[in-house]
Design a protein around this nucleic acid. Structure first.
Lengths: 197, 197
DNA sequence: CCGACTGTACTACGGATGTAGTGCGTGCGT
DNA sequence: ACGCACGCACTACATCCGTAGTACAGTCGG
């Protein structure tokens, strides 16, 4: 281990976090090896050494994104199916609210990378890891709540939340984030319509 | 008018359409003056002349996008408030289905440009023109249907549809587009939950 | 019939970008 | 104790990008 790097969490993580921050702030065109060096305060060439090619840099960023996003979503504290509808509403509202307030940057970077994954199938892999785990949990929950079409209802829920976040972060409604109460109300309405057709 | 250009709809429109196609196919980093020249089969420098700066090229693309998107959304054939809930469901489902099938490319380009507009406020202007008109129409419709919170419900509807389109076009669920029937069903559920709280 | 004008073709250039190559110092295994 | 491997700093280079400048052809007004 060489002396002491300016970060306590490893060079690669610092590069990855800086890449995500750059994606949010300057978009896909703003993410370059040199820009990461500068933004992270690292000597020129450092990012090239951590991730030699652009593809490697993007994969590093996506991997890191999956880690941090899992924490934002609260993947390991999802409610139990027996906790009922309100627990699900609360968990989803909380996750969305966290994504929109303390993690706006991460959310924006996710959309940038999702679009890029359209053209780079290798990136899709890491997305799907976190994404599928989350969706599977959701499917179990809506099933337990009596959904007659769990797959479609899961997609509906995820799409609603994702679309709302996109609207708030990149849409014309780039006003402030909805309050947790508004989020809960919207989710209750959506779930109510799904479960009492 | 110089002789006959290779397009019948004007040089600027050809450049704008090609720019949108490139955005969908190669992303923001794939959109360059030279790439547009090549993809459109125009002699090198043509795009530079139509839109000298990158900013101008992006504005041209966004303007064109607003035009074409308005047609996809059916902005001028929105149902009358008195036509009832089913007419609204049909109109929205049809619009979403059109966006996902015959206009996937346009939809992808819209997300690219929406993200870019985050960092270029000038682009936001043209988005808001079409977007606000559409939302205002929706607000009128949900109000007529008895919504107790038209603004939030409009946002909910738009977010649901937008999130679904994003999921289908760029998400892990990049499976085929939902059928119009599935779209109608999802919309009915969402509206039912909103209007019968 | 001719001159100004507009849109087009083409070239030039400063700067940035992705990627590869090369020494050097540090910590580790033996 | 000492060579070895590894991560790091730094440099080099070919390519590509945005933008500006200039010359030309066809069109329209007088």
């Amino acid at each position: 281990m060489p002396a002491r790097t300016p970060t306590g969490t490893g060079r690669a993580d610092l590069v990855a976090d800086t890449a995500l921050a750059l994606l949010a702030a300057r978009g896909m065109r703003g993410l370059t090896h040199r820009a990461v060096d500068e933004a992270a305060g690292l000597p020129p060439g450092s990012t090239s050494n951590v991730a030699r090619t652009r593809q490697a840099l993007l994969e590093l960023a996506v991997r890191r994104l999956a880690d941090r996003e899992a924490r934002v979503l609260g993947l390991h504290e999802m409610p139990d199916p027996r906790d009922g509808l309100d627990a699900l509403v609360d968990a989803l509202a909380l996750a969305a609210h966290r994504a929109l307030t303390g993690n706006r940057e991460l959310t924006l970077a996710r959309y940038e990378l999702a679009l890029e994954a359209t053209r780079r199938p290798e990136l899709r892999t890491y997305f799907d890891a976190t994404g599928h785990r989350f969706r599977d949990q959701l499917t179990g929950l809506v099933t337990a709540l009596g959904s007659t079409d769990p797959a479609r209802h899961t997609l509906s829920l995820v799409a609603w939340a994702d679309g709302l976040m996109f609207s708030c972060v990149a849409g014309s409604y780039n006003a402030e984030a909805p309050s947790p109460d508004e989020l809960r109300q919207g989710l209750r309405e959506l779930l109510h319509g799904m479960l009492n057709g």
